[in-house]
Design a protein around this nucleic acid. Structure first.
Lengths: 217, 217
DNA sequence: ATTCACCTACCGTCCGGTAGGTAGTCAGAT
DNA sequence: ATCTGACTACCTACCGGACGGTAGGTGAAT
């Protein structure tokens, strides 16, 4: 348990060049995506020569993969924590907590999370299996939450849980194209988004997607 | 009114190489985005040499700009037509019509529309002014529709119309990353999305974002 | 004669990646 | 105490190839 035989395990826990390279790559990937971000740019911003990147990583793809997975994992953990903290609360409160956590992680935490959304594809090379796996794991959190909402009657039974998940995650992730810190604050945005799809107050039933509410008629 | 003095006006109305180049560029941009799509690819797919593209267009940017603007304009016109056809109908019906038209244009009409979403930025060169203008014009359609919804009481007055527009367009455009024709059909998806944000039946008031519905409690 | 719609050939630049060298560190042998 | 050899974390220099774009030519149609 002493030597580090694998490139990806270098430098153990303490902060070193590897972390600096990833931080820089995340920043550039966030604004430029996969193709526009070059190894030369990354190296120059870090302050080393391009070839030195290959001491820490085997390829460009490996750098991008690490950034993207870190980003998704961070959002994943933030949402899981938010859901754990609101266990037993109303479906609406839990939904808002999840939305808030996702947005906060996306916009409030460095560049990894934004980069992980911006880099949706890896160019002509297929999306690495690890990335697909990490993304799928995060989607499962939402699958479970939405199933719970539907079980508890907060999502009308005739609604498609898949449609809600895709709709909601699309809207949330789309915010990286327009969100600017000054315009909205994240908590207000989360409240707004939650209100748009979840009607009724916190204790109520049939909050989302009830086709005939029977309120007015 | 006879000769064509401008490159961008070549070939008048009849179909020629220009259209073929744009069709091909749209197809490639749809799947590859701005940086991954190269002039060599386009030329090869069209069946001409790369240099010949420069007879019809002044630069790569001009080709992409034409594709993107065509795509946005097509969606724009589709939504405007759908709203014109449902004038006087309930807010919910008009919202569903607009959503349906947007999704149908996005997924049912060639590659221009998808390309126009996929190519959000133009690399390091700033987004051309014409593109910003065309996009803004389309957003205005939604601004007006949402203002109308709020005027007629279908969107709660305390809700931000900007948040709804950004949320909804984000979710709609995000569908290009996951939509496959076999899984959902567009009309069903539009119905589903509408139901998620607009509650109550067609004649009802306070359909979206009413914080306290007063139904259960 | 001129214009159209292409062509071949080439430009400088940048790309991801590789080969091989070199100071500095440090453990263990002498 | 000093030498040795492995290892670390970089470096310079280069590779083949792809990029967007340009120069200038050519046969057919007008």
């Amino acid at each position: 348990m002493s030597e580090a035989p694998d490139k990806s395990q270098r430098e153990g826990v303490e902060g070193g060049s590897r972390r600096l390279i990833l931080d820089t790559a995340a920043r550039l990937l966030r604004s430029g995506g996969y193709h526009q971000t070059t190894l030369r740019e990354i190296a120059e911003a870090v302050g080393i020569r391009k070839a030195s990147l290959y001491y820490h990583f085997a390829s460009k793809e490996e750098i991008v993969e690490a950034v993207v997975n870190d980003g998704v994992r961070f959002v994943h953990e933030a949402v899981v924590a938010a859901l754990a903290a609101t266990e037993g609360a109303s479906p609406r409160a839990r939904l808002e907590a999840a939305i808030h956590a996702h947005l906060k992680a996306l916009h409030g935490h460095g560049d990894y999370t934004s980069a992980s959304i911006k880099v949706f594809t890896f160019g002509e090379t297929p999306t690495p299996e690890s990335v697909r796996r990490v993304r799928r794991a995060y989607e499962d959190v939402w699958r479970e939450l939405i199933a719970e909402l539907q079980r508890e009657g907060a999502l009308a039974p005739e609604r498609s849980p898949d449609a809600l998940r895709l709709f909601l995650l699309g809207a949330l992730n789309g915010s990286i194209d327009w969100y600017r810190p000054g315009r909205f604050d994240v908590a207000a945005l989360a409240r707004e988004f939650t209100a748009l799809i979840a009607h009724g107050e916190q204790g109520g039933a049939a909050l989302i997607g009830a086709d005939a509410a029977g309120a007015s008629g």
